[in-house]
Amino acid sequence: MTDMTRSRKMQRSLVYNKLATGAFYGLGALVLLLILWLLFTILGKGLPGLTLDFLMKLPEDMDAGGGIGPVLFNSFYILFLSLVISIPIGVGAGIYMAEYAPQNKFTEVLRICVESLSSVPSIVFGMLGLAIFAEYFQIGLTILGGAVSLAFLNLPMLARVTEEAVRAVPNDVKNASYALGMTKFQCIRTVVLPMALQGIITGICLVAGRAFGESAVILLTAGLSTSGEMWDFNLFSPGETLAVHLWYVQSEAIVEDAAQIADRSAAVLVIIVLLLNLLFRIPLWINNRKLKR
């Protein structure tokens, strides 16, 4: 191969590299603009009319001027209960699959099943929760049923993300900890989990945002109403959430200001999802500071 041919190939590679770089930058800018446009559209309509009275007031079925107090509380309550159930089980299952499970056909089949469950439509889990709590246990549409059904929905994704995060930790680091005399549990607790924390927190952020904005599961398991109280901790009360209330107001409500309530509810939903992501990032910032030290 002559020097001229090599030079032409090198120039062609540099041109392709610049074109690819420009294309990726353009795609990134396009996605960013799309997100900013969505946020501007949703928040621009809802934020001007957003008040503390709207956040604390009870919803109205007939008269204008209703709020979202109980449904907003139910959203946080059900989210908290579902995370309390799903995080220990999902993270534990991911650690088991990555560190303890033997490499055989049964494990591979189990991993495929978990991946398949991650892509199952949420309404299927809603039907499962309806069959278990409303039909089998005869407790009706309740906060408990909605929380457990959301935990079922989030478990496969959380387990799979945790497994991949733990597997991404280099084996050299694990072997070094074993050489220092650590047991397997000590290695996982002091070495593996801190290094895999970013991936695990990312998975928790995904399932938390999905759970807070979920409507199909809640509609089938927690119902389309509240107890009428602002702070109702009873697990057997109906548990309409903000996402379900937004759907109801936008599609079936007959109050005069239904469109305004829907715009404000959508703005609140977006803001809370963004705040949840920031909240779950705090442990990552603390962990990164410890690793830098």
Rank of each mutant, 00 (worst) to 15 (best):
T2C: 07
M4P: 10
S7R: 06
M10P: 06
Q11H: 06
V15L: 12
N17F: 04
N17W: 15
N17G: 14
A20T: 03
T21C: 05
T21V: 04
F24S: 05
G26H: 06
G28S: 05
L32N: 12
L34D: 08
L34C: 15
I35Y: 13
L38K: 09
T41N: 09
K45G: 04
G46L: 12
P48A: 08
G49Q: 02
L50D: 12
L55Q: 14
K57C: 00
L58T: 07
E60I: 00
D61F: 04
M62H: 03
D63L: 01
A64Q: 12
G66Y: 12
L79W: 04
F80T: 05
L83S: 07
V84P: 11
S86L: 06
P88N: 05
G90E: 06
G92K: 06
G94N: 12
Y100S: 01
P102I: 04
N104T: 11
T107H: 07
L110M: 13
L110T: 10
R111V: 03
I112G: 04
V114W: 05
V120T: 08
I123Y: 03
V124K: 01
G126A: 02
G129S: 04
L130D: 04
A134E: 15
L144N: 09
V148P: 03
S149H: 03
F152H: 09
N154Q: 14
P156A: 06
R160K: 05
V161D: 10
T162R: 00
R167F: 09
A168N: 02
N171F: 06
Y178K: 11
A179V: 10
K184W: 03
F185W: 13
Q186I: 06
T190C: 07
M195D: 13
M195G: 08
I204E: 05
V207E: 04
V207G: 02
G213E: 10
I218L: 01
L220K: 09
G223T: 07
W231S: 14
D232L: 06
G239W: 01
T241E: 01
A243P: 10
V244S: 03
L246R: 08
W247T: 00
V249Q: 15
Q250S: 15
Q250F: 13
S251G: 10
S251Y: 13
S251D: 09
I254P: 09
I254A: 09
I254V: 15
E256K: 02
E256F: 07
A258L: 07
A259T: 10
A262R: 02
D263F: 09
V270P: 09
I272A: 12
L274N: 01
I282H: 02
P283T: 08
P283W: 07
N287Q: 12
N288I: 09
